[in-house]
Nucleic acid binder design. Sequence first.
DNA 1: CTGAAAGCGCTTACAG
DNA 2: CTGAAAGCGCTTACAG
Lengths: 347, 347
Amino acid sequence: MTKADAPSSPPTQRVTSHDVSREAGVSQSAVSRAFTPGAHISPETRQRVLEAARKLGYQPNAIARSLVTQRSGIVALIVGDLHNPFYPQALSQFAQALEHRGKRALLLTHDARRDVQETLDAASRYQIEAAIVFPTRLNSTLPSLGDVSKGGVPVLLFNRHLPGRNLLSVACDNYAGGRLAAQVLLDAGATQLAFIGGDPETSTHQDRLRGFEERLREAGLDLLAAPSHAFQYDWGVQATLDLHAAGHVPDAVFGANDIVAIGVLDALRQLGRRVPEDVSVIGFDDIQESARLAYRLTTIRQPLEIMIEDALRALDDPRPGNGPSLHPGELIWRDTVKRYDTAKGQT
Amino acid sequence: MTKADAPSSPPTQRVTSHDVSREAGVSQSAVSRAFTPGAHISPETRQRVLEAARKLGYQPNAIARSLVTQRSGIVALIVGDLHNPFYPQALSQFAQALEHRGKRALLLTHDARRDVQETLDAASRYQIEAAIVFPTRLNSTLPSLGDVSKGGVPVLLFNRHLPGRNLLSVACDNYAGGRLAAQVLLDAGATQLAFIGGDPETSTHQDRLRGFEERLREAGLDLLAAPSHAFQYDWGVQATLDLHAAGHVPDAVFGANDIVAIGVLDALRQLGRRVPEDVSVIGFDDIQESARLAYRLTTIRQPLEIMIEDALRALDDPRPGNGPSLHPGELIWRDTVKRYDTAKGQT
DNA sequence: CTGAAAGCGCTTACAG
DNA sequence: CTGAAAGCGCTTACAG
C-alpha cells in the first residue's frame, strides 16, 4: 500500500523518537530530554541524540507532546472579513509575536452568518491556550463569548471593548482619540464639524463619537451631522455625498476610521471641495493607504505593536478583572487638516 | 494547586470522552463513535451520548485524535511580509476554504532573514498535511524547499512558479497577462511603453515582463525602459520620477502589480501628466485599493477564488508532476487606459 | 451494534 | 544522569 518512493528519497514514514533512540543507542526518554531545554541530560548524550536526529531528519511530534503536557502552544486568531487592512496587519504581527514566544497561531475565520461560539468551539478542540478575536461586528454574539471565557480558555477582544463583560480586551483609547480629533479640527478653525461613523454597534464607533462630540460641546459646538453605517470605503463616499446633498456643508470631517476617511476624501474631491483649504479631514488607524500621495491623510495612529505586546501579556495572566487596556493613539500629521497658522490667517 | 473557580463556573478541568461515557452510561468507544460521522452506532446511543456531551460541555480533543489517526487536519499557511494587500485577501480566503473542507490553517510567518526551511520544520512538528507558501522573495531559499516537498508533506507555492522544481504551484498566467497588458496599451495607441517592475528575482515579475516585451516586439516596438526593484508603492513612485528625470517620457506604463501601478499614478499626478490623456497605466492583481475613485486603475485581475480551489485540489492529490497550474487573468476596465475610440480620435 | 484493549508519540515521575 | 513504565485522550481492529 505504500507508494513507490522517488529513487533518492529516504524510506520515509514518520520518524519517531524511538527511531532516533535506536540510532543513537540510548533510551527513548533520552531522546525526549535532548529536545527539552532544561532537562537533566549530559551534554554528550544530548549531542549524540541530536546528531542521530539530524541524520534521520527527526522533528519532535508537537501533537504528541501537546497531549501529554496539556499545553498545545496554540493560540487561535479569529478573523472576520478582512476588508479593513488594519486587521491583516495586526494579524501577521500577532502571528510573529506568538512565534517569538514559541507559540503557534491557528487561523480561523468567522463570518457574520454564524455565531462566534461555533468558531470558538472548533478552536477549543485543538486545545488552544487562548483566543484572540478580531471583530467585525460582535454585538450579536456577545452572550456566548462570555461563556467561553469562563470555560477556561481566555478570550481577548482586539480593538473592541465590551463593557460589563468578563472578557479581556485591548484597544486604542478611542474616547481620547475622538477628543483629540476634535481638538485638532477645532485648532484648524473648523466650526461645522461632521462625524462619518462606522458600524454604530461597535465600541470603536461609539467611543470615538462620544469623545469627539464631548469635546465639541465643551467648545460650545454641536455636531453638524453624524451618520453611521459601516467601516467601509463606499460608505464614506456615500455619506459625504448625502451630507452635501442635504445642504450640510462641513468645514471639517472626522472619519470613524481611515477607510471611511479615504472615502470622504474621494467624495470631497468629486464634489470639488478642496482639502484642507475648504474642509479638513482626519481619520483613525493609520493604515498604509493613508500615506499615499493621493491622500496624505492626517490621522490618529493606533499603536499596534504596543497593543499586541499588551494583548499577549494579558493572555499570560488572564485575571478575570483584567479589564480593557487602553492605549493612546498618536496623531500623524499629514496634509488633510488645515495648519494652525494657516487657519489663523484665514479666520 | 488548582486555582479557585469563579462561583458559577463548573468544576472544569478538561472534560474527556470518559466523563461523557460515564454520564451516558456507555463505553468510551461509544462516545468516540458518536462523534465519528460514518461510525457503526445506533441512533439511540448516539443521541444519548450527544446529550451527555452537551450537558458536560464536551468537545472531542482534536490533538488526541490527530495522534491516532495520523491526520492532523492542519495545513500551514506561511506568509512573508504582508505589504501587498493581495496576500491577506488570499490568506483569509484560504483559511475559509480550508474550513469548508474540515481542515484548519496554521499561520506561520517567514521573514527574509531566516530560511523558509526553518519555518517549514516548525510547521512539520505539528504534523501538517500540507504547506502553502505565500512568497515575498523565495529565490534564496529554493533548494531547501525541494527537500521538504520530497519529505512527504506537499508544499505549494502560491503565485510563484519555480521552474524545474518538484513543487506544486498555483499562479496566474503572468506571461499571458503581460501580453494582454501590452495588447491593451497598444490598442490605446501607445508607442512609448515602459514596464515598472517588481522584485526582478520573482517569477511574477519575469513572466509579466517577458509577455509584455514579446508582444511589443511583435508590434515592432521596443520597451522604453523596464526598471525593477520591489513590489512596493514607494518604488512605483520613485521609478516613475526617475524615468521622467532621465528624459524617458512614456505614453503608457505597465506596473508589475497594482501597488506599483498606484505608485506610478501618484508620481504621474505629481509630474502633472494626465492619465489617461497623456499616459495610460495598467496594473496587475486588482486589489481593493485599485477601485478607489482617486485611482480607478485599469488592471488585470487574478482569479483568486479559482486559484485557491485549484490549489486545494492539487494538495489533495499531490502528484510529483502536478506542475504549475496557470490561470488566465481577467482584464478589469477602469479609467487609466485610453479608450480605443478615444485613442483613434487622437492618433 | 457494543465494549475491552492496544497503541498513536510523546513527557515525566520513579528508581537506580 | 539514565531507563522502564505509566499515561495524555483519542481511534480502531477484534471479539462478541
